[in-house]
């Protein structure tokens, strides 16, 4: 495993090194002393594995494709924002807007996430072992947000076709977000997401939340767009 120490390397050099791996590379990297710096391990495209040992700043693993990025610490604002594919795992807590606008891939937060987790998500799956802050899944368009703990007020405000599963308590739901029946398909999707995340939770304890479809012009013909 190649080790890169940010005590003696710039963020730009780190990202250039990680981005230089060939498309099929499955090389492994360890990043030391991240020191809360912003935009670490961003724009990766190869299926490499990057382990960051410490707390990271804003937008860590942003725009990720194919890579597996693990943060052994807390993550600042916008971890895995606009992720396309791959796996990002935060061993600690995540700040606001985790997984914002993500199109695909899986974001796992072993601790809790603060406000606006999964804001405007467009297909990403997010699994939070702890709780999430207010206005999570705000305007969420597609994908799944799994919350093993509690959700603060405003969950799913102005939500489109993303689906939320919550095991704990919810505060006041956001506009046009409603509790919906948990189907066999939901249970299977949830069971698979928990298994892929490596997070132990009983799928039977979860409730489903989604859009009441009264705030936007929902047309069943357009369902395939989400």
């Amino acid at each position: 495993m190649e080790s890169i120490d940010l005590a003696s390397t710039t963020t730009r050099d780190l990202n250039a090194r990680l981005q230089s791996e060939a498309d099929g590379s499955n090389a492994a990297f360890e990043v030391l002393h991240p020191g809360g710096r912003h935009a670490l391990a961003c724009g990766l495209t190869a299926p490499i594995a990057v382990t960051l040992r410490g707390h990271v700043g804003y937008y860590c693993a942003g725009m990720n494709q194919n890579a597996t990025v693990t943060v052994h610490g807390n993550a600042g604002v916008g971890v895995a924002e606009n992720m396309m594919s791959g796996l990002v795992r935060v061993m600690g807590d995540a700040s606001q807007s985790a997984g914002a606008s993500g199109h695909g891939g899986l974001l796992v937060i072993e601790g809790s996430a603060s406000a606006r987790c999964g804001i405007s998500m467009k297909g990403i799956d997010i699994v939070v072992k702890g709780s999430v802050g207010h206005n999570s899944a705000f305007m969420a368009q597609a994908g799944h947000l799994v919350i093993c703990g509690d959700a603060e007020d405003g969950l799913g405000d102005s939500i489109y076709e993303a689906v939320i599963y919550v095991s704990g308590e919810t505060g006041k739901l956001g506009a046009d977000c409603e509790e919906q029946p948990m189907t066999a398909d939901d249970r299977q999707t949830l069971t698979e997401l928990l298994a892929r995340s490596g997070i132990e939770a009983d799928p039977a304890t979860f409730r489903r939340y989604g859009s009441a479809r009264s705030l936007y012009n929902f047309k069943i013909d357009n369902l395939g767009s989400y």
């Binding site: 020191g35 809360g36 710096r37 912003h38 410490g54 707390h55 700043g57 804003y58 610490g73 807390n74 600042g76 600690g92 807590d93 700040s95 603060s114 406000a115 802050g133 207010h134």
Partner: peptide
């Protein structure tokens, strides 16, 4: 405002680090 301002404090590796709630 950001963690990087705290990263140089002595003993930060073992500190409890959290985001204050609204």
């Amino acid at each position: 405002s950001e963690f990087r301002a705290l990263a140089g404090l002595p003993g930060i590796e073992g500190a409890t680090v959290w985001e204050p709630k609204p």
